[in-house]
Design a protein around this nucleic acid. Structure first.
Lengths: 196, 196, 196, 196
DNA sequence: GATGAATGAGACTTCATTCAT
DNA sequence: AATGAATGAAGTCTCATTCAT
C-alpha cells in the first residue's frame, strides 16, 4: 500500500512534468509549476527526484521503457524484417500521435539540455536502437537486406529519418497525420531514393 | 572604412561566439564570455546584436550562408543527381570536420533553444533543404530517382540521416572520420537497406 | 517503566545530538540526522523536544548539570580556594578531554546560535559561574585572594581564560594535551603575568 | 577616480553589513537587506564580494586592520610592557564602546559561523594576538613579567579575559561602562587573583 | 507512543541588458 | 562608437515541523 502510494506519486509527478514541460518548454517550466500540476508541494518533488534534471531523465526513462516494451510486443510475432521495420515506424509514429505532449517533450524539450544530459538520454535510447539493430541483423541473415549493410549507419538512417519526420511534425503543431506517412517512409528506408 | 570596421567587429563577435559556445555550451556561455573572447566590452555586443539569442541566430545565418554557397559551387557543374547527392553528403561532413567548434554549435548547442528560436533556425535551414530538393527533383526528372518519390519525405530522410550521423560524431567527441562515411551513407540513401 | 523508557529515549536523543552536531556542525546537522543516529523517527524527536533549538538547550543543560555536579564533588572536601581553583581548571579540562564530541559542541557549535539562545545558554552557565564565585569568595574571606578583588571581573578572567584555552584546543583538533596545562594556567590566574 | 569609486562602494557595503548584521543577526540578515542599507542593488554586492560569507570575512579583516593599526599607534611610544598592556585593554574596550554595532558583530554574530569560517577569522585575529605576544616578550625581557611565563597561555588569558568581558558587556546590551573596567582588569592580568 | 511522508516558506546568486560617460 | 559598472528579476532546493495512521 505504501509502496503503491509511492509509485502513484512518482508517476503522478512524471505525468505532470510531461504536461507542464510540453506547455511551457523545459526552461520556462519551474519545479513549482510541475508540483502544482501534480497536486503536490514543491518539496515533495524532491522526495522522488534528485533535482529538476532528474525529473527529465526519469521521465524519459519511464516513457522509453513503455515505448520499447510496446514496440517489442508488436514486432514479436512477425516473420520478416521488412514487416517489422514497417511496424516499428508506424507504431513509433502512432505512440507519438497518441500523446502530443509527450511528443513535444521528446522531440523538442529533451534536446534543450547540455551535453552531459544528452549523454544520459542517449544511454536510455540505446534500448530503442537495439530494437532497430535486431531488425537489421535479422534482415541481413534471412537475405531481405543487403549483406554488406553497415548496421550502425543503417540504424542512423532509420532513426534519423524517423526522428526528423517526427520533429518536423511537432514543429508544425501536428498539422498532418504522422502515422499515415509510415508506409512511404518504410519504402524509402528499404529501397532508397533510387529508381530500382 | 567605418562600415568596414563594423563588419569586422560583427564577424569578430560571431567567431568568438562559435568558440565560446562550443567550449562552454550555450547555456553556460555568458555574453560577457563572448565579449572577452572577442576582445570587446559587454556593451559593445549590443551595438551589433539585439540580444543573446540574436547572436545565435546571426551566427547560424552567417555560417549557413557560407555552407550553402560552398555546397552549391561544388555541386554546380555535376551532371547526375546521384553524384550531386554524394558530393552534398561528403562536403557537408567535410565542412563540419574542418571546424569542430562550429560542428558542436550546430549539432548540439543550437538545439538547446526554445521552439520560437527553433522556428527561426528552421527558416534559415530552408536554403539548405532547397539544395536537397533540387537534387531530388533533378533526379526524378532525369530518371535516376523513383518517379513516385515524395520529395518532402525523401528530403527528411536525407537530412535526418546526415544530421543523425553528424550529431553522433559530435557526441563521441569526433572519434571517427566523418567524411569517409559519405559513400556508404550515399549508397544507403540511394538504395536503402533492401537487397535490391 | 514507561517513564523510564521516556527518560531513556530522551537521553538517547541527546547523546545522538552531541555526536551528530559534533560531526556535522550545528547548522549542517539536520533533525533527521539526529533521529537516524538515535534510531528513532524524525517525528519522535518532537515528542521529547519542542524544536531543534530545544535539543541544543536541553543537551547543554543536561551535560552542564553533570559537569557542575562532578566538579562540585571534586572540590568539596578541599581546604583552600587556591587548591579548589586548580582542581576546577584541571577537571574542566579533563571532562572536555574525555569527550571530544561534547567539547566540540560546547566550545564551537553552541555558539553558532542567535542572541536569544545565547541568553538561555548563559542562564544555564550561571550554575558553573557560581562555582567560581564561591571559590573566589572563599579565597577572599580566608585571605588567599586579594581582598579588593572584583568578583565579577575575576570570574570573567577565570572563565574567559579556561574557555579561550579550551576553544583553542578544539580548533587545533585536540592536538595538544589540555589537562597538563592546568597548573600553569592556575599559576597565571593566581599570580598574573607580573614578576611578583 | 574609478578606483576611488570602487573603494567607496566596497566600504559602503561593509559598513552597511555591520549595521544590518548587528540589527538582525547574521542568519537573519539577508543579502538584500545589506544591499538596501548600502543603497545598491543586490547584484552589486557580488561585484565586490564572492558570496555572503565573504562579506563577513572581509568586514572582519577590514575592521581588524584598523583595530590593530590604532592599537599599535597608541602603544608605540610607551616604555613599559605594563603600561602597554593597560593601553591595549583600555583601547580595545574603547573602540568597541565607540561602535556598538561593530561590537555586536565581532562579539556575537561573527561566531555564528562554521568551523571553516572560524579558522579564517582566527587567521585574521593573529595580527592582534601578535600585539599581545610582543608586549609579553618585552615584559619578560625587561623584567616586568615572570621570566618563566608561557607566552601562549598568557596570551590566551589576556585575550580570553578581554573577550569574555566584552561579550558579557554586549550580552547585557552595553549596560555598563566597559572602558572604565580596564584598570581593574589590567590589575588582574598582571597580579592575578592572589593576595600578593 | 511512534512513525515518516508531506509540507511550503524562504534566500542566495546569476547574468542579460542598460546607460552614463 | 565603445565601455563596463550597475541593475534586479527570478528560481531551485532545503529542512524544520506536522499529522494522519
Amino acid at each position: 500500500m505504501l509502496k503503491n502510494n509511492q509509485k502513484t506519486k512518482y508517476k503522478q509527478i512524471i505525468d505532470a512534468a510531461v504536461i507542464t514541460i510540453a506547455e511551457n518548454g523545459y526552461h520556462q517550466c519551474q519545479v513549482s509549476k510541475i508540483a502544482r500540476q501534480a497536486g503536490v508541494a514543491d518539496g515533495t518533488i524532491y522526495l522522488y527526484f534528485k533535482n529538476k534534471e532528474d525529473i527529465l531523465i526519469s521521465l524519459f526513462r519511464e516513457k522509453m521503457q513503455h515505448f520499447i516494451q510496446r514496440l517489442s510486443e508488436i514486432i514479436a510475432g512477425k516473420n520478416t524484417a521488412t514487416e517489422k521495420l514497417l511496424l516499428l515506424v508506424e507504431n513509433h509514429f502512432r505512440i507519438l500521435s497518441e500523446n502530443h505532449a509527450l511528443a513535444i517533450v521528446t522531440q523538442l524539450e529533451l534536446r534543450q539540455t547540455n551535453k552531459e544530459l544528452r549523454l544520459k538520454i542517449n544511454d536510455i535510447l540505446k534500448g530503442y536502437l537495439k530494437l532497430i539493430d535486431d531488425i537489421l541483423i535479422e534482415g541481413i541473415e534471412n537475405g531481405e537486406f543487403d549483406a554488406k549493410l553497415d548496421i550502425r549507419l543503417a540504424r542512423q538512417m532509420i532513426f534519423g529519418t524517423i526522428d526528423e519526420t517526427a520533429t518536423s511534425w511537432v514543429m508544425t503543431d501536428h498539422k498532418f497525420d504522422l502515422v499515415s506517412l509510415a508506409p512511404k517512409i518504410h519504402q524509402l528506408l528499404i529501397h532508397g531514393c533510387g529508381n530500382n
